[in-house]
Write a protein that binds this DNA or RNA. Structure first.
Lengths: 253, 253
DNA sequence: CCTAATTTGTTGTATATACATATATAAATA
DNA sequence: TATTTATATATGTATATACAACAAATTAGG
């Protein structure tokens, strides 16, 4: 019939229709945390589909963290863990986009330098080894939002590419200028106050609170191939995190 | 045979043995990002197992984000996304524990108050409605690290429990004192400077940069049932994030 | 030589079946 | 009554099969 919960003749896979059906039930609260789903056999019988197809759908729900299964007992709606929070750094950038502003990366400086003691230690290389040095400002509609200082090793000896200016992420810079490929990354987010130089670039007053993020890129042999420091204006950036099943309803509150 | 890659007589499921086998290959770098896995049929033939079992193993690898599949082409090792970062708030607390220090929550104040205009707006209730007000200090080995101010509705009218003092998380407080259960949560992380009061409690100087986190708890009907503000000392807290396949090796670097 | 049609190879979906394993309930037994 | 044993029920694992959908290579035809 038309408008059934699962349409066997639809181009949309049955398991996916079923997944969406239960997702809706959970997000809307019709199925609450702790509630049991019907048994796989019951679902299969009710919709006249095979149990393996039902398991496929439930597997997706498990992957999404919305239900959990217990052998011999059943399948239950999970309790959203409101205390294990993750902040996604992408919000840093997405937020700009959402406001309809246009993000722009401006390369202030890019040149070859010889590593001093401090930098040599950071990159795990010898003093006076040649490295690349970048200074970047991220702006939205002309207003500076972030100031980034980055260093990469210079083992590939290739020129600075146009593409790097469009995506001057540290991993991209590392990929371009190291003869080994980026494998792992470590980021540390801290609070700080803007230095004189940073305040000047960002157009804020001295001692303004800022986000300070330090990133280190490693290759497959766990050698450091890039190091960078980013300063985000505290009055323009924030990290937002939502948890729970009916998250869509509370956004923009 | 003993010591084979997959042991059909083992109590460990075949699909899981296969999953672990490929996981190891990827983490060790024997299979590099972009590399193709053998086809499902090849794997099935090589280990003398069915294709569906192979697909089960690959499904786990996909869930773990280590490989991706392309219909009609094959299965490939994923490139670790070093730019989509998530910060886990638990580091805030785990870090303390890792240093061997003992975390302690001290309840400074807990009482019933009548909502003023500002609070009424935050909790989405009428002015003068009775609410609960909490002030908490989190210490490690006696040193204050965070200062939290929390408000919950008082619809259940139950006394403050001993258990709340052990876990004074906003969702727990909301669960204890609202007649509806917490369903969703919103957190916003910002940078700020300590106010006079906050600085005094935390034992830092005025205008010290701090993390400021605001959390809102909603019930299933998307009504706000709790609101809280946390101040984390900027000189004691940081958020760390690792990405990539061989992250274990770069920790503590 | 170029283009279109066909074939081949790959993952995706769906079904049916069998047995393993964990849990809870009911029955049998001491 | 208390304990053990069987039974029913639930999810977990593994296999075999068939066809769909997509991608790339090959072939046929102009």
């Amino acid at each position: 019939m038309q408008g059934e919960i699962v349409d066997k003749n639809s181009v949309i896979p049955i398991y996916y229709q079923l997944f969406k059906y239960f997702e809706k039930q959970i997000r809307s609260g019709q199925l609450q945390p702790g509630d049991a789903l019907p048994t796989e056999m019951e679902i299969a019988a009710r919709f006249d589909i095979s149990r393996m197809t039902v398991r496929h759908a439930i597997g997706e729900l498990v992957s999404a963290g919305m239900v959990y299964t217990q052998k011999g007992k059943g399948t239950f709606v999970a309790r959203p863990r409101l205390d294990s929070v993750v902040f996604n750094l992408n919000n840093f950038y997405d937020e700009i986009r959402q406001k309809g502003m246009k993000r722009h990366s401006e390369l202030l400086e890019a040149r070859i330098i010889k590593a001093d003691e401090k930098l040599a230690k950071r990159l795990g290389i010898d003093i006076n080894t040649r490295c690349l040095y970048f200074r970047i400002v991220i702006t939205a509609d002309g207003e500076p939002l972030a100031y980034e200082t980055k260093y990469t090793v210079y083992t590939k000896r290739s020129p600075i590419l146009e593409s790097e200016l469009k995506d001057p992420s540290l991993s991209n810079l590392a990929a371009s200028h190291s003869d080994t490929i980026p494998s792992s990354s470590k980021r540390v987010l801290m609070v700080s106050t803007a230095t004189e130089e940073e305040a000047a670039v960002l157009g804020v007053s001295h001692d303004t609170p800022v986000f300070l993020m330090v990133q280190t890129i490693y290759n497959a042999e766990n050698k450091i191939i890039a190091w960078g420091k980013s300063i985000f204006r505290g009055d323009r950036y924030k990290l937002t995190s939502y948890e729970g099943w009916n998250v869509e309803n509370i956004k923009n509150n």
